[in-house]
Computed example of a mutant assay.
Amino acid sequence: MDAGDSLQAFAAKWRAAWPEQTVLDLFVPPAQRLSAAAWASLLFELHSAAFTLEHEAVRDGKTGWWAEELQRLQGGAPRHPLTQALADVDAPFAAMAVPMLSVVRDVPLLAGDTTSLFARLRPFAEAVSACEAAVFASRAHATDADSLIAEWLVLRLPDGLAAFDRGMLPLHLRARYAAFADNAPPPALRRDWLAELEAAVPRTAAGNWFREAQRRFLRRRIRALAADAGPRPGPGHVWDAWRAVRSR
């Protein structure tokens, strides 16, 4: 498998988690298709390594490898197909490594409420946001980090609520539904969590077309989850993708 095939294999994993992205692909400027797919797939791999692996040794090993790879990417010697596809981008990739590892040391995260949880994740999200702005030749908006955090949390739903870290669910919701414990999460808990996440998604436009598309898609994903519906692309996603790309 050559580098191009490997990149597409990783992109397929990302698109399987976010089927809405197939709509966005139709509107991506041709010159940015490769970097957009590589960046989105890289974010998905970092999220998976940092937040979805239960066993500490495996989690530390994978995130440690990625931290080194981010440093190698900025140093001009990437090894992975995704980072190789971003090798020509002048971005502070290495700056993502330390905040990522700092967050990983605290997994599973136990935050008192949603505000505290966002604060714990914000240094990592801000580092990612700065890189994303460089990838898409834009300036990061202050709200882009919150958009990223909300995306990371929504990516854990619905199955993450039954995982080892309860999908990073804040303690105030765990206390409200104390009977949840090791049982299946009640519908009311998921509804309340989705309401808090929807409120946390920035209302203002993002700093680049890619993040703006994700922000719009995220709001639709939350509403779909609240209605117990799957993430199926629809006309609304076409509108969101067109508006996001056109506005930037």
Rank of each mutant, 00 (worst) to 15 (best):
G230I: 10
L155I: 03
E198K: 12
L153A: 06
G236N: 03
E126Y: 01
P78H: 06
V58Y: 08
D165K: 12
R139E: 14
R246P: 07
V201H: 00
A94C: 11
A16S: 10
K62T: 12
A31H: 04
P30W: 06
F93H: 08
L225E: 06
H172N: 14
L73Y: 05
A188E: 15
F27L: 05
A95K: 02
S247T: 13
L43C: 15
V104H: 01
R176C: 05
D25V: 07
L42F: 12
W209M: 01
A133T: 04
A36C: 14
D60K: 15
A181Y: 03
F136C: 06
A224S: 15
L101D: 00
R105I: 08
W193R: 10
L189R: 00
T83C: 12
A163V: 01
L155T: 10
R120W: 03
A85C: 10
K13G: 11
V154I: 14
A3P: 00
A145K: 01
T22W: 04
L101H: 05
D25W: 05
A11R: 01
A40T: 14
F164P: 07
R220C: 08
R246G: 07
R243F: 10
Q8E: 09
R120E: 10
A226V: 05
A57L: 10
Q214M: 11
S102E: 13
R243E: 04
G234Y: 06
V238A: 09
P185S: 07
K13F: 07
R219V: 07
W14D: 11
M96D: 00
P123C: 02
D88A: 15
L225I: 09
L109N: 05
W14H: 15
S6M: 08
D159V: 09
A137N: 10
A3T: 06
V23L: 03
V107R: 12
C131P: 09
H80K: 10
A17C: 09
A16K: 08
L155A: 15
S129L: 02
H172E: 12
R232N: 08
P29A: 02
F124S: 08
S102N: 13
L7W: 00
L157I: 05
A178M: 04
Q74S: 10
M100P: 12
G64I: 03
L7P: 00
P29H: 04
V128T: 02
M96T: 07
R216G: 05
L225D: 12
